[in-house]
Design a binder for these strands. Structure first.
Length: 1186
RNA sequence: GGGCGCGUAGCUCAGUUGGUUAGAGCGCAUCCCUGAUAAGGAUGAGGUCCCAAGUUCGAAUCUUGGCGCGCCCA
């Protein structure tokens, strides 16, 4: 009879055996991870573990990390948690791998969003109102507002376990930072890379301000606008009007006076059509002829067809003469030689479509961004200063200027009608209709339509560095890879000059001073440099402000309005003053300058910069493609180029591409899920809540996180309910970081049982028995000569334990898990070195599964056994090593759980000799010598046999409690048979059978089929493969296999000729025949012998009885130590016999002192079904035998 | 309209260079275990790998086209 070795009474005493030998602290079994994390945070802070982790790597090779600065003027949300978790993971990992990884925090503080926030508070909108309120107090408020939520950010950062220095974070409005930015801009200015030009913006004419794209997006309305088709008469070669017109279409007649070009698509087909009623020919897109004819109610006869490219270069007469009369004949020299008329020509443009209009587009570059780009391209074809200039007949107030005298001082939208009438009178209007479309209005004055309008702006000539930026980009390791040639590469390909300046207040002032007399300019690189200028004036503005506000931050002196007051003597004209231009700069330039500006370079921090450039690692979300990723790359490429030699200006700086970052993980955007009442649209964060309130009317919704909708749980709620580790593991282990994920409370919650609790249970199991058995690794290893903190307890060190046997002396199960452990460590390192956290986490999950569901499950007997034995000691050493190493492996991922394990498994027994924190340890890299792939394969076979055995039992409704006499395992490949025989006991125990057989001939219950080994034969046979497949299917498998076994080869006759096969060329499949209790796997069939004899039945019944008693014990909430009396009443003789036969076993299992067939007075009778009969169970606690 | 990405089980997602029985977790069903125990585990059902064509001996995987979704830009 095989019954599991159990502990019995002695064990119970052992559990409370006060030997005091084991040094592990008891593990609470109702662990609260959030509480544990709070305690560990205090521990880290108290012991300065982060600082120690840096100090320990003081002289090590560096791993450079850059913090992309968040804006602290809003509350952090779950997306920030993801970013910050990723930013923590790799620095922690690299630190444990032995690198010095400093982590300097940073804050982005400038820009329009800050101004908008302050305006909201003040209840004002326009720039006018800001000026009225006063730029000085406005700026003060901006500065105060940027740190409004700093505390929330700091708390979140800390709570998440993100180790970063926030105390000395860089701040973009600080003087040293601003001066670094100034230095960069001055460098650009002096290299001729900073220039003035026009930028087409969405302009609120009534308010006199440009709107950001976000603001524009808020104000679209559906409106009817005039839609006019206008004739532009073509000129012939002599410059005279021809008999043909371009027909162009526009919905903004007011832009026609500023017309400069007409555009066609070069590949599009156009038609010359005759309109006899008009007596002229028109050119329109061929595809639109019919449509236009219908609209004009004219018959249009196609005369000829031509490509758009044939039209390019043709001149025309614009509908208004305002500019044409003076400039119509003007020509300029082309760069490539020759001359050309500067304007009123047909251009080729890819953006022209035939979706609407005529396929010919009127170009007024002043009032459209793509149109303006076209003008810039065109200008570049001409020699310097010879190309077309921007024409604009409209003032910033949205009214026509004197350049269009007919409409002077008329608001453009109102002038549309008059312009249309004028065109009609002159016969140039071909069709007029209304056009309904979406058009942007000002979001704060919704009757005011916005117009696109050119504003003077400063640009950085990034286009001149397009190739350099592409070359730099090509060297960056992007994750995912497609960013490089996809989204980011494409963006670089279509690079336009960086519009740098902003006509705003709270930003880095553009450091350019202009001579009031001559208009000549120079750039200033630092405050000190400014003060050293001759004849400096205007410092009093700042000094007075300091007097009024003694606590005013010194950093503000480099900001508006104080900096604007500072003038100095012009070097360009005697007696003239230099005054700063009023603009501030795009705050993306600020953050992009961070690689050097965080150190105040080059005015200070040269060493730090040289050391911390470029970054090895950055990570932000996808929305930073055109933001921080670009601004960094652009600035760095322009500033530092591709050189590695010492630069007198830069100091020793490694500036070979790629810089300023080498590896970049681009995070996906995160959505959230919530539940909604389908009628009322009430929102709930969990399905249960919603169903409780609305039953079936609940629908799941997935979408963007929106603060107003409150459709996601706050990070703090997640921390309080599940902890930071759960959130982190959810981020790291659920999907590759660049996929857009769903922030789901359900999924975060799942992490606990799936990963954390699973590990915790193994840990708990280990500690429980280690305490009982007095397993004391410190005593065994000795700590006499150890320096404090020197013990990291890796496998090699643990192998020195007095009772620790060499790995290859331990049983296969131990060697297997040690192999898995080392394999996992090596795999995790490979993945993490490739920045694949998801792959690494997947390996860790797999290892934990193996550890918990196979190693511990199969090792319990050894921990339970009373006797001291080498195998038992091995079990301890093996599991101990697994847990310690796992703690280190998971440390960067779930730093709290890892630390808790380490504190108890290492620090508790070894005291100060152990590394104080798991985060001060070296990362395990795996010992290749201990990885046994063959063993891994064999163990997989055992697990498959067990799994199939269970499936077969399930199919036959034979529960595991019922012992069976035998199972037969039919293998297609008997290579590992000898080894499997050694695992006999394990399989028998797991499947509760008396014998496992491996029959060779098993034709009774299985049939073979033979299939080609495709990966092997495919390349060799090619087209013949299907024939081989067919022939194999038809061949006699038994004969074929016998032949292969005996001679090693087999000649197969196929339709296409004979093919010689060896045993590697085929794969044998087994199929269970009908009628057997069998389960079939890829290479084996497991067949149950379902015959039961009296002994087996009796033993099964005994187990049923034990089960019933144990259930009852549990119902009565008995302690494990409680001994009981059991009474059983039954009419079933089989049950009685079973109890008689297995009484000892039953008593041992249930801690019963006696089992009788009498009812017990005072005990509640409970009836259970066993073997189809009612069995009444009585249980009482045996108080007398305490 | 353009660019990029995505489309695999009820849900959330893996799936490495093409290899013939497509995987995991959750949920569901059935059940096991009851000394890791307010846990743990097994087994199962569930799939037109969005559609179509092509390349190939062989396609979830490669190509082209279409449909749908998301993001960015117009």
């Amino acid at each position: 009879m095989q019954i599991r070795d159990c502990r019995g009474l002695l064990f119970i005493f052992a559990a409370i055996w006060p030997n005091g030998k084991s040094m592990f602290n008891p593990v609470p079994n109702n662990v609260s991870f959030p509480k544990m994390e709070e305690q560990l945070l205090a521990f880290w802070e108290d012991r300065e573990i982060y600082e120690k982790s840096l100090a320990a790597r003081g002289n090590a090779e560096k791993f450079v990390f850059y913090e992309g600065p968040p804006t602290a003027n809003g509350l952090p949300h779950p997306g920030h948690c993801l970013t910050r978790a990723m930013k923590d993971l790799f620095p922690r990992y690299k630190t444990m791998r032995g690198f010095r990884c400093e982590r300097k925090g940073g804050w982005d503080t400038h820009g329009l969003p800050v101004e908008v926030e302050v305006c909201k508070e003040l209840g004002i909108h326009s720039k006018e109102e800001i000026e009225e309120f006063g730029v000085e107090p406005f700026i003060h408020r901006c500065m105060e507002s940027v740190f409004r939520y700093t505390r929330e950010w700091e708390n979140l950062t800390k709570r998440l376990g993100f180790w970063i220095h926030l105390q000395d974070a860089y701040v973009t409005y600080h003087q040293s930072y601003v001066e670094s930015v100034w230095w960069a801009l001055k460098t650009f200015f002096e290299r001729g890379l900073l220039f003035q030009g026009h930028k087409i913006v969405w302009w609120w004419a009534q308010g006199g301000t440009a709107l950001s794209s976000g603001e524009v997006g808020q104000g679209y309305k559906t409106v009817d606008d005039p839609s006019v088709y206008v004739r532009f008469p073509l000129l012939d070669e002599s410059g005279e009007q021809s008999d043909t017109d371009l027909l162009v279409w526009t919905t903004t007649p007011w832009t026609l006076p500023s017309n400069q070009f007409a555009a066609v698509h070069p590949q599009l087909d156009y038609a010359v059509v005759r309109d006899d009623e008009l007596g002229r020919k028109l050119i329109v897109a061929e595809a639109l002829v019919e449509q236009i004819g219908a609209k004009a109610k004219r018959e249009l006869v196609v005369e000829t067809k031509l490509k758009g490219s044939e039209l390019v270069g043709r001149r025309y007469h614009p509908p208004f003469d305002y500019y044409y009369k003076d400039q119509g004949d003007q020509q300029g020299e082309l760069v490539e030689g020759g001359t050309q008329h500067v304007a009123w020509r047909v251009l080729a443009a890819d953006f022209v479509t035939i979706d609407s209009g005529t396929g010919l587009v009127h170009e007024a570059p002043a009032f459209g961004e793509v149109d303006h780009d076209l003008l810039m391209e065109e200008r570049d074809r001409f020699a310097q200063g010879q190309g077309p200039h921007l024409i604009c007949a409209v003032g910033p107030d949205g009214k026509f200027t004197g350049e269009a005298p007919d409409y002077k001082d008329r608001w453009v939208k109102e002038a549309d009608k008059d312009i249309t009438r004028n065109l009609r009178e002159r016969g140039l209007l071909y069709i007029q209709e209304q056009y309904r479309h979406e058009y942007p209005f000002c979001w704060r004055a919704d009757d005011d339509p916005l117009i696109q309008y050119p504003r003077q702006s400063w640009f950085i000539r990034t286009t001149a560095f397009k190739d350099s930026m592409l070359a730099n980009n090509a060297k960056i390791n992007w994750l995912p890879e497609h960013i490089r040639d996809g989204r980011f590469g494409n963006f670089l390909e279509s690079n336009v000059d960086w519009a740098l300046s902003r006509e705003r207040y709270w930003g880095t002032p553009l450091p350019i001073w202009k001579c009031q007399e001559t208009g000549k300019m120079e750039a200033i690189g630092s405050y000190e440099e400014l003060l050293a200028k001759p004849g400096v004036q205007g410092l009093d503005s700042w000094e007075q402000a300091k007097e009024r506000h003694p606590n005013l931050s010194e950093h503000l002196k480099v900001h508006k309005p104080y900096i604007d007051e500072i003038t100095y003597d012009s070097p360009f004209a005697a007696g003239a003053h230099m005054r700063r231009v009023p603009d501030v700069i795009d705050c993306w330039f600020d953050s992009g300058a961070m690689p050097f500006a965080q150190w105040g370079y080059p005015h200070q921090g040269r060493e730090q910069f040289a050391d911390q450039f470029p970054a090895d690692f950055i990570s932000e979300a996808l929305d930073q493609t055109r933001g921080w990723f670009y601004s960094q790359l652009a600035i760095s490429t322009l500033l530092f180029g591709d050189k590695s030699e010492d630069d007198p200006q830069l100091g020793t700086v490694q500036a070979e591409y790629p810089h300023p970052f080498r590896n970049c993980i681009v995070l996906g955007l995160m959505n959230t899920e919530w539940w909604e009442n389908s009628e009322t649209r009430e929102r709930y964060l969990t399905e249960d809540e919603c169903r409780d309130a609305h039953g079936k009317k609940c629908v799941k919704r997935v979408g963007k996180m929106a603060k107003q909708l409150r459709n996601y749980p706050e990070p703090n709620q997640i921390f309080d309910k599940y902890g930071a580790d759960a959130l982190r593991w959810f981020f790291f282990a659920n999907q590759p970081p660049w996929t857009s994920s769903i922030y789901s409370e359900r999924s975060i919650k799942e992490v606990i049982p799936e990963f954390m609790l699973r590990l915790w249970n193994v840990y708990n199991f280990f500690v429980e028995y280690a305490r009982i058995d007095g397993f004391n690794p410190a005593e065994e290893l000795g700590t006499d000569d150890a320096a404090p903190g020197s013990y990291q307890l890796d496998g090699n060190q643990l192998a020195c334990g007095a009772s620790a046997r060499d790995w290859n002396e331990r049983i296969e199960l131990d060697r297997w898990i040690i192999s898995e452990l080392n394999r996992t460590a090596a795999g995790v390192v490979a993945k993490m070195d490739a920045y694949d956290n998801f792959g690494a986490a997947t390996l860790l999950k797999e290892f934990l599964d193996a550890l918990s569901n196979w190693y511990v499950r199969r090792s319990r007997d050894r921990f339970w056994s009373n006797e001291e034995s080498a195998e038992k000691s091995d079990a301890y050493w093996t599991l101990y090593e697994c847990l310690l190493t796992t703690a280190k492996l998971i440390a960067p991922f779930t730093p709290f759980l890892a630390e808790e394990l380490w504190r108890n498994l290492a620090v508790a027994p070894f005291g100060e000799h152990a590394a104080e924190s798991v985060h001060l340890c070296d990362y395990p890299t795996g010992n290749a010598a201990l990885v046994d792939e063959a063993l891994r394969g064999r163990m997989a076979i055992v697990r498959e046999i067990v799994s199939l055995g269970r499936a077969a039992r399930m199919n036959s409704k034979l529960k595991v409690r019922q012992p069976l006499a035998e199972i037969d395992v039919v293998l297609s490949d008997r290579t590992h048979l000898d080894w499997l025989l050694e695992q006999d006991e394990l399989i028998r125990d797991e499947l509760n059978v008396k014998a496992v057989e491996y029959p060779e001939a098993a034709d009774d219950y299985i049939s073979y089929s033979v299939a080609p080994n495709f990966p092997r034969l495919g390349p060799r046979l090619g087209k013949q493969l299907p024939q081989v497949k067919k022939a194999l299917a038809e061949a006699n498998p038994a004969a074929l296999l016998a032949e292969l076994e005996s001679s090693g080869k087999y000649t197969l006759a196929t339709a296409g000729g004979d093919v010689e096969l060896d045993s590697e060329d085929v794969q044998v499949r087994l199929n269970a025949k009908e009628g057997w209790a069998a389960a079939q796997g890829s290479g084996m069939v497991v067949v149950l012998n379902t015959e039961l004899n009296d002994d087996l039945i009796a033993e099964g019944l005994a187990r049923d009885i034990v089960r019933a008693i144990q259930d009852r014990r549990k119902d009565l909430q008995l302690e494990y130590t409680d001994r009981i009396h059991v009474g059983i009443e039954t009419d079933n003789d089989d049950v009685r016999n079973s109890i008689e036969q297995f009484r000892e076993y039953i008593m041992q299992e249930t801690l019963a002192l006696k089992v009788t067939f009498e009812p017990i007075d005072g005990a509640e009778p409970v009836t259970v079904k066993i073997a189809g009969s009612d069995v009444v169970v009585f249980i009482e606690v045996a108080k007398d035998a305490g």
